[in-house]
């Protein structure tokens, strides 16, 4: 007995606990994923069976929903994917540039009325979206931007989303001041410090910003419907809703199928982005 237990019990215990962890993570993951699995399974069922057969395993598999959904609207679905991709890509760039600039200023520099501006910055996201729709529409219609993508991307380039400014402020503030000072002693100006010292160390925050902007813009429905009301300009979320009609006939099968397809790009972006997400100070070798 003694010999068995002496065969490195620490290692053994660690392996067991690791196994348990994996088991827990997988089991929990399945619960989390149930709705998604149901959606995938439904997208593979013949449309009339989706609600008649509630089970997870389809009794009959068909790709009709995919082929039908792809071509059901005025344009093939790739058209809407492309529209969404353009808006989303520009939004990501806009948020990354504008919000990081503003965040550096708020986090590191001193200037008069800073606290007031900061409070105002946070205050702007406290007003519910629905009461500013109309005035905002008026602003964009004054700027003659209705039915263009400007109302969707201009706010991003003008750091309209305080969420990301505040996020980056918090990340920058976790960085020790000594870094800036060292750079300053080396003769670096504010711009160089920002670009060479702060930004590289904020990779996780930038990745977070990029990922969230991508997802939120990709899924943002109402402003895209409102500002791009011509069917030729439709984006993925708007196209997806046209499959549903609460007063008439809905195309649930194609809707599920195209929803799965629409998940592809955001999931892909997340996969690509998470590499940078975990490239923080921990891995940059900063002492």
């Amino acid at each position: 007995m003694a010999t068995v237990s002496s065969r490195n019990p620490v290692l053994y215990r660690r392996r067991v606990s690791r196994g348990a962890k994996h088991l827990m993570l997988i089991g929990f993951g399945l619960v989390m994923l149930y709705p998604l699995l149901w959606m995938i399974s439904s997208s593979l069922k013949p449309e009339e069976l989706i609600f008649r057969e509630p089970g997870l395993l389809p009794s009959k598999i068909t790709f009709d929903n995919y082929t039908e959904g792809w071509t059901a609207l005025a344009h093939p679905f790739s058209y809407y994917l492309w529209n969404s991709a353009v808006i989303t890509a520009l939004s990501v760039v806009g948020n990354l540039v504008a919000c990081s600039l503003a965040a550096y200023s708020f986090a590191r520099l001193n200037f008069p009325l800073k606290k007031l501006w900061f409070a105002l910055m946070l205050g702007t996201i406290m007003l519910p979206f629905h009461v500013v729709i109309v005035p905002q529409y008026i602003v964009f219609s004054q700027l003659d931007m209705i039915n263009t993508i400007w109302p969707l991307i201009l706010p991003k380039f003008l750091a309209h989303d305080s969420f990301f400014i505040f996020l980056m402020v918090q990340f920058i503030r976790t960085l020790p001041r000594e870094l800036d000072e060292a750079a300053s002693i080396d003769g670096a100006g504010y711009w160089r410090t920002f670009f060479r010292v702060i930004l590289p160390l904020c990779t996780p925050a930038l990745a977070t910003t990029a990922i969230f902007t991508f997802i939120w813009t990709w899924n943002d429905f109402f402003s895209q419907l409102l500002y791009l009301n011509n069917p030729d300009n439709f984006t993925v979320p708007v196209a997806l809703r046209t499959f549903l009609d609460s007063s008439g006939e809905s195309s649930w099968g194609p809707m599920f199928a195209m929803s799965i397809i629409a998940l592809g790009p955001i999931f892909g972006f997340f996969l690509a982005g998470q590499k940078y997400l975990i490239r923080g100070m921990a891995t940059t070798g900063l002492k």
């Binding site: 729709i133 109309v134 529409y137 008026i138 219609s141 429905f221 109402f222 419907l225 409102l226 009301n229 011509n230 069917p231 708007v238 809703r241 046209t242 549903l244 009609d245 609460s246 007063s247």
Partner: peptide, 18 residues
């Protein structure tokens, strides 16, 4: 100018108001 039903009056009223 097409909309799904749940958002129809919201977007229409916005345009009328503007």
């Amino acid at each position: 100018e097409f909309s799904d039903w749940p958002s129809y009056y919201e977007s229409l009223a916005t345009k009328v108001a503007a």
